[in-house]
């Protein structure tokens, strides 16, 4: 084995990564092409529900989407005001799971995940995490 083959034997050939990335992103784009884009609406309604129970600052809301092959995660992180924030479980929304037993600091968002997507890094502010999953790769024909 030469020193060159050491450099060449990266974990995955770049072409393989290219293919995987394309398959994932295009599966989502094809779905989005036919169906309406419901994500913005969903986010708004989710926030509206949470706002019924806690006082949230619009600027402290972080929405992250990670499109994966087997599942996608929609993560809504909402920084809650102070200790005095009133928290009641928002039982009426199926996909919104408020963090249980909110700690003042260092609490991780409550998350439900399936598939192989990586858990997010720790967050420092108390937050409400919400997760949406959907099905995987679909073909055109």
């Amino acid at each position: 084995m030469s020193i060159f083959s050491f450099f060449r034997s990266t974990p995955k050939a770049s072409a393989v990564q290219a293919k995987e990335r394309l398959q994932i992103v295009m599966a989502h784009e094809r779905v989005g092409r036919t169906g309406p884009d419901y994500l913005p609406m969903l986010q708004q309604e989710l926030l509206a529900v949470i706002a019924k129970y806690v006082d949230i600052d619009e600027n402290k809301v972080e929405v992250k989407l990670d499109r994966g092959g087997d599942c996608s995660t929609l993560e809504v992180n909402i920084e809650l005001p102070g200790r005095d924030a009133v928290r009641k479980p928002a039982a009426s929304t199926p996909s919104a799971k408020p963090a249980a037993g909110a700690k003042p600091a260092g609490a991780k968002p409550a998350e439900t995940r399936t598939g192989d997507s990586k858990p997010s890094e720790n967050r420092n502010a108390p937050s409400v995490g919400s997760v949406l999953t959907n099905g995987g790769v679909s073909k055109r024909h």
Binding site: A13, S14, K19
Partner: peptide, 16 residues
């Protein structure tokens, strides 16, 4: 061959 470029078959599979 060196794994640096998408194969014909890859592109065909993706675009169908």
């Amino acid at each position: 061959e060196r794994g640096e470029m998408l194969k014909v078959d890859d592109v065909l599979e993706i675009l169908a």
